[in-house]
Design a protein around this nucleic acid. Sequence first.
DNA 1: CAATCCAATGTAAGCGCTTACACTGGTTTT
DNA 2: AAAACCAGTGTAAGCGCTTACATTGGATTG
Lengths: 342, 342
Amino acid sequence: MSEFAKPTLDDVARAAGVSTATVSRCLNAPDLVITATRERVMQAVETLGYTPDFGGRALASRRTNTVGAIIPTMDNAIFARGLQSFQQALSRFGKTLLVASSGYSPAREREQIEVMASRGVDGMLLIGSARPEASVEFLRRRGIPFLGAWNLGGEDGYFVGFDNRAAAAGLTEAVLALGHRRLAMIAGITYMNDRAADRMEGVRMAAEQAGIGADQLPVIEAAYTFEDGARAFGELMALSPRPTAVLCGNDVLAVGALQKARELGLRVPEDVSITGFDDIDLAGVVDPKLTTVRVPHNRMGEAAAEMLIRLISKQPVERRIEIPTEIIERGTLGPPPADPAV
Amino acid sequence: MSEFAKPTLDDVARAAGVSTATVSRCLNAPDLVITATRERVMQAVETLGYTPDFGGRALASRRTNTVGAIIPTMDNAIFARGLQSFQQALSRFGKTLLVASSGYSPAREREQIEVMASRGVDGMLLIGSARPEASVEFLRRRGIPFLGAWNLGGEDGYFVGFDNRAAAAGLTEAVLALGHRRLAMIAGITYMNDRAADRMEGVRMAAEQAGIGADQLPVIEAAYTFEDGARAFGELMALSPRPTAVLCGNDVLAVGALQKARELGLRVPEDVSITGFDDIDLAGVVDPKLTTVRVPHNRMGEAAAEMLIRLISKQPVERRIEIPTEIIERGTLGPPPADPAV
DNA sequence: CAATCCAATGTAAGCGCTTACACTGGTTTT
DNA sequence: AAAACCAGTGTAAGCGCTTACATTGGATTG
């Protein structure tokens, strides 16, 4: 073995004076090997700096102990946090995580699914449930277990997430309870994004329930940036009559709205109320602090890991695990102005 | 092939009536195959839903087209942003990214390095340069090209990053130029973190240069949370004489400090100036907006990808690429109070 | 028209590993 | 004391792929 060659099982076997089978057993089922032998082998492993070749191992054992996760983007605190917990939980089970991002594109997600399948992942974590049937079909054909996270999905499939619709409805009810009647919403882009769509629907449902029809509830969809949130808020404030409460599909939009409100000289919540969704760090930092919905990403990541492991090892699992959300009341929601501006 | 079995090269070959070699060539070097054959093969690939097995491919070709990145944590906007660009650039070269996190622990980083090596990554991206020699030695022995990012490293190795020390010194000079003399610093934890250490040193250097010795420059190290930043700021404000400017090792600490300042009834920057570092989104959202140092993570991610690709394909490369930083003047830095409180 | 060449394809040898099965020799059982 | 057993180890057959080399037959050359 040259200085730069990667040592193989064979090298170790030769160095320890045993067969490759024994070395393999030392690594995978140490109990089968007598202590003296094992120590000799481990010594050889150590001095040679041997690490098993993943490809060879995967090929021979038809297992990879790898699970894949495809998220819309890494550049978003929401997914980052959940994924971090997911990974930690996974590693407790000896699995490693492969992460890829789809950039919110179903086509790119499909590509990544194939990449992961090629790599022989034992299971897969996807976000939400809005995707072409073909992607799902592919996974099923291959017999790769997978689950959706961050929401609760539809008819079939496995899910661990929260009920975005119910949470949004709950928050809306809280707003209504304060006496607001002229609501508006800045929603995230709903195309192929069930979280955003569900939140929008939740707000609409609750409004409807209170006798506020869709025609009286202006909704603007905006991309996930402060600027887009600010712009949408500007448009909403130009409306007449002006809304007294603006429900935002996520905290980033809400913070953008908040900035715009300051720019427009509107006091929050005296002149206009604003709510967010997700309770990212940001929410506690702006002034006033954001009233929002807390989504326990850590718990979700862990629950997802556990569920996927069970799915992979064919243990019985519940079809969906709901993670409860919670309204966090801080400073941006108050009663409507007594004499609302027109 | 049963409904649930993964189709192999052999299945495709049989279906298309060619040899496995031809199928392989269709996938890897299509030019070598005549169009008619290729179309027949591709058709078979399509109908069978074939995706090449990564393990088999890696084993046979001794290439993986995979590069690894080990970052301290995913749950940090700074790394997320750079990594996103890194990945995008990489995928333009047909490489896929494997991400792992070390949780700021050198031991865990070492483990992950071995995992990546096992998986046969063609190259590796690490953060910074502070790590046990053994980790570096391992990589070298294995002949795996790697580079450090986010800083500029030491004597040897490849780096693409910024000069944290110089940037911190530059910002400190700007603070001094406004007339501040009673400086203090809230640094990130410097243990095994050269970025934090360099920033601290930069501040100290510039202060020294202005005749302010280390004994006149209180420094507190704080973990990467708002709370820790706030706590440290509280301690600093209890000092007598009270600092008129607090330089923070990153934006998160600065925002924590800012909150604490408000809590203490101190006006920023009238009573005390605060500066950050990194220019994360947050910096533009707090009130007043943070004066900080912008670090172009996108450019860095791309430059890192390019450099690593060159390293892998043994093309000539520069040993270090410096990404310039920029001071972003916003609202938290002003002249010291005329009659500073004691 | 034989010799040569070359493009298109096939043949088959591994890549590094796991694991079913075979073997060995001591211990227990009958 | 022979039979049965078993713990510890070895032998060797692939896993799915790539690729050096061999083969084929039509086009080009002298």
